[in-house]
């Protein structure tokens, strides 16, 4: 039943992360599939989110100050516009701090 090749988890079909409003500074969710995740209002300051998939994720009010989103996938301008970033936030290529209310 256990599948060590997948971090030990066999299946959790349909699981979508919901951490709205959570305090998650300096945590590491690099390369995680955050598709349709609800991250609204969560504080991900200085968190590692490199290569994460943000397809249809809710980033409304998500604090991403100093967070590393290098190579993040499916991250849109409107998602960034809804989030709170600063000059230390590392965005994936093609997105810039101008897409958000920096420092908000």
């Amino acid at each position: 039943m256990t599948n060590p090749a997948h971090g030990g988890f066999s299946d959790a079909e349909g699981f979508e992360l919901d951490v709205r409003g959570a305090f998650l500074r300096r945590t590491d969710l690099s390369f995680a599939n955050l598709e349709r995740a609800n991250l609204s209002g969560a504080d991900f300051s200085n968190a590692l989110l490199r290569g994460a998939n943000f397809k249809d994720a809710n980033l409304e009010g998500t604090i991403l100050k100093g967070a590393d989103l290098t190579d993040a996938r499916n991250l849109t301008r409107s998602q960034i516009a809804g989030a709170v970033i600063d000059e230390h936030t590392k965005l994936p290529r093609g997105l810039s701090a101008d897409d958000s209310a920096v420092g908000g």
Binding site: H6, G7, G8, F9, A12, A32, N33
Partner: peptide, 9 residues
């Protein structure tokens, strides 16, 4: 724990 699962999804 969450990441272990979310990385392989």
């Amino acid at each position: 724990t969450l990441r272990n699962y979310l990385v392989r999804q």
